[in-house]
Design a protein around this nucleic acid. Structure first.
Lengths: 330, 330
DNA sequence: CTGAAAGCGCTTACAG
DNA sequence: CTGAAAGCGCTTACAG
């Protein structure tokens, strides 16, 4: 491995001068040329690890997701990675399987690797390690849910509003017996999405608690709970509050030999490629995946650069209701 | 940040001694106790970055996938990460969008971060940077396809055999007009899967080149090419050679108002959760995802530990044909 | 078993 | 603008 030292020798300058050159400082023209030449000839490549030792920067960002196979998270991470890479940052990725003990361990791990920041998906409870990280000026961005009792930048969507609007849409088409497949209550997203539904139903005077089924975001749970819902003869439409549950819901509807939207209308949450395999094309609430990825990158880099001037932002992005063929006027 | 130096002072020993303790060396009992106590009291945590500087190890592995939203790759990475994390390694993840220029850049990037190894999915052409990495003793594992003209450990499945068996299965059920939705030829996986099909068809004397459609692994292409295939009245079964194309194929079959398996039998490739939403349950070829992840981790750690004794392994794992309801005897 | 010292590749006040 | 030197947090022959 060729180091700055060899470059210095070959260029006839000191290593400090080479270092300054590499960091974009202005030098005597002749020296710059010599250094540049030496770098080329020797094939010098900088060692980012060594570079970071002095100022304790690693140019890496830890990203913690629940599951590496969750399409929502990986889609965002993909955009985030693009953004960060342009700024010479790399991503250390880990999943924590919805287990806060595990998350804590992974965060320790990342801390020991001197990450400059961490991005955490779907965490709601504060963890002792996070407070420690804040003290040590490690940037933190929470995604998709706010972390209680911890002031950090947060990027999420307006889930409440999305649900509210889903009900609006169905109501305008004449539906007033609208079932919902909700995620666990007690968790932020589950609550927001369910409350948006409830308030919208109440506003129209069509609220009925029998229309509510609580599932757990898995396809299997969406399937089961939709079956329950279908036993309720009055339902004419279903609002399913996440991607996987929607897939399960559709399966349950198909198995009940009901057709969409003739027998039942449905609105899903999230628009990833695979919902499009379903016939007819589902009406879904789309999250601004790309914008979320960019926003996260922007916030974390700002934190790192501005050295945490105690300014915390919560960015709440709007969703988009994509109206397609799975809903029908009645 | 508390360092080894402070621990040494508090424990009344030299920093070398603390270092040795941290690396599991045996010391005088009293010193060990004092150091342990000092570590606790001060809340010392090791700095992996600094640790790696001396021997140029970073305890990190770069992983390059085509797309972060490819469920096949992320499923494997998820298992790999578990395996590596147990060994104190972390993963730096990046996608390269099927663009070798981009891949090269990402590899440079990872090299500058002193990764101890890289895992590369779906690469077939050797890249200059890879030769350089080999020279510098950076471990390399190729996944899912061998890299031409480069000796590295490789983990893949027996694609040829999988296809051969898919045709066997259909043939035994009485099918002899079996269409195939293949991926691009000219690429390793595409060739292997197509050749297995072709040879199996020829072996049974039922080969007909009109039964072959070449798609490009996307759902959309699977959809279009299946439509083409269905124009061929003789077809009684379809073998679709990847996950996304299978989803497209099913969609095309549904739109043609044909039912599975009454009108047409189908065997797909890959078994991820979402194929199970399809009615009836698809017969699919399962890849040993978990084993692949473990194997990759095992090989890369062996390379790092054994210091590359010029031993290169290609691990070819078997697939499993999961027989379910989408195929029928005729 | 342990201390003192050199070193990993780089940065950065300091002095000129 | 630049060199010499100290330092980032840790490891590891060397000598005892």
């Amino acid at each position: 491995m060729v180091t700055i030292r060899e470059v210095a020798a070959q260029a006839g300058v000191s290593i400090g001068t080479v270092s300054r050159f590499l960091n974009g400082k202005q030098l005597k023209k002749e020296n710059m040329e010599n250094i540049e030449k030496a770098i080329k000839e020797l094939g010098y490549e900088e060692n980012i690890i060594a570079k970071g030792l002095k100022n304790n920067k690693s140019l890496s960002i830890g990203v913690l997701v629940n599951s590496l196979t969750d399409i929502f998270a990986t889609s965002i991470v993909s955009h985030l990675e693009n953004h960060l890479e342009e700024n010479n940052y790399s991503i250390i990725l880990s999943d924590y399987q919805n287990d806060n003990k595990r998350l804590e361990k992974k965060l320790e791990f990342m801390k020991s690797r001197s990450v400059d920041g961490v991005v955490i998906f779907h965490l709601e409870e504060n963890l002792p390690i996070l407070t420690k990280m804040k003290e040590q000026k490690i940037a933190i961005v929470a995604v998709d849910a706010p972390i209680k009792n911890l002031k950090v930048d947060t990027v999420l969507v307006d889930n409440y509003q999305a649900s509210f609007k889903a009900v609006d849409t169905l109501f305008e088409l004449g539906h007033n017996k609208i079932g919902v497949i909700a995620g666990q209550t007690g968790r932020y997203i589950g609550n927001e999405r369910l409350n948006g539904y409830i308030d919208s139903m109440k506003q129209k005077g069509i609220y009925n608690k029998e229309f509510i089924e609580i599932a757990d975001y898995t396809r299997q749970s969406g399937y089961m709970k939709t079956k329950e819902l279908l036993k309720n003869q009055k339902i004419t439409a279903i609002y399913s509050t996440n991607y996987y549950m929607t897939l399960g819901a559709v399966q349950a509807i198909q198995e009940a030999n009901l057709s969409i939207p003739q027998d039942i209308s449905i609105i899903g949450f999230d628009h990833f490629e695979l919902v499009d395999i379903i016939q007819p094309k589902l009406t879904v609430i789309e999250q601004p995946i790309e914008k979320m990825g960019e926003m996260i990158g922007k916030l974390i880099l700002e934190q790192i650069k501005n050295e945490f001037e105690n300014r915390y932002t919560t960015v709440e992005l709007e969703t988009n209701l994509l109206l397609r063929d799975s809903v029908k006027k009645i």
